[in-house]
Design a protein around this nucleic acid. Structure first.
Lengths: 129, 129
DNA sequence: CGGGATCCTTTACGATACTG
DNA sequence: CAGTATCGTAAAGGATCCCG
């Protein structure tokens, strides 16, 4: 796929997995929460609330693997602490991600209305046969 | 979840599903391709290449439901044509989505290197254990 | 051409239990 | 505290066949 006049450099085959990865719900929320500063594991868990322990771990490992998040262990501390923070590369993601987040926040009312509109009137409804 | 100093208005409970929806691989690609102008069904299918017929349909219905994409049927034409285009709301999504797409394009090399780095050295590799 | 319906495989994800 | 390992379900997604 090409983006014509907008000319995204390189393959969309390579960017689309990345896009779907960072556009991923948990990954996006994690990056956004970490943009406030370094956080510990259970701190992240509490702030993202709806995330399960398993998905938080999986997400953090993924982001660490991408080089977007750094993991630091402080075994000397009591209790032992693990701190997560954004890498410089991770920081560069915050702005575009936040912009998309803003867009969602601004337009979620309109979208929910559109959905209700689409579902309701029966033009499209398949359940009422 | 709150975004502290950045203060995303409203619940993140409502924006995160939307974010994961528009951040969705197929939805994002579809919106981006449609930002070039109206396209017909099989035209979209060819341009997005890797998309299956089923997923394209599902994605288009979802975007239509959100009010981001408009579907117009021209039965009079030969052969009968169905044209998809962005709504004004859909247009407003292009810019932030494109920004994220650009980020992916710019950083995909670095990310792939990070991943190889993370997987390779054996520090993290579990398979060779 | 532009899909809908169905089947089947893969993946995502949550719940639970255990560890250092 | 900060995880890992395993299990079972639900959702995503591809392949295929069929229709107007």
């Amino acid at each position: 796929m090409k983006l014509g006049h907008m000319s995204v450099p390189g393959d969309c085959d390579r960017i689309s997995p990345i896009l779907s990865h960072v556009g991923n719900k948990w990954a996006a929320l994690t990056v956004l929460v970490l943009s406030e500063g370094p956080k510990r594991y259970n701190q992240l868990r509490r702030e993202i609330e709806t995330v399960s322990q398993r998905m938080l771990t999986v997400t953090l490992r993924g982001l660490e693997r991408d080089g977007l998040v750094r993991r630091e262990v402080f075994a000397e501390r009591m209790p032992p602490q693990v701190e997560y923070s954004l890498t410089p590369l991770g920081e560069t993601l915050v702005q575009p991600l936040f912009a998309l987040c803003q867009w969602s926040a601004v337009n979620c009312d309109a979208i929910e209305r559109n959905q209700a509109d689409y579902d309701g009137p029966g033009r499209h409804a398949r359940q009422a046969g």
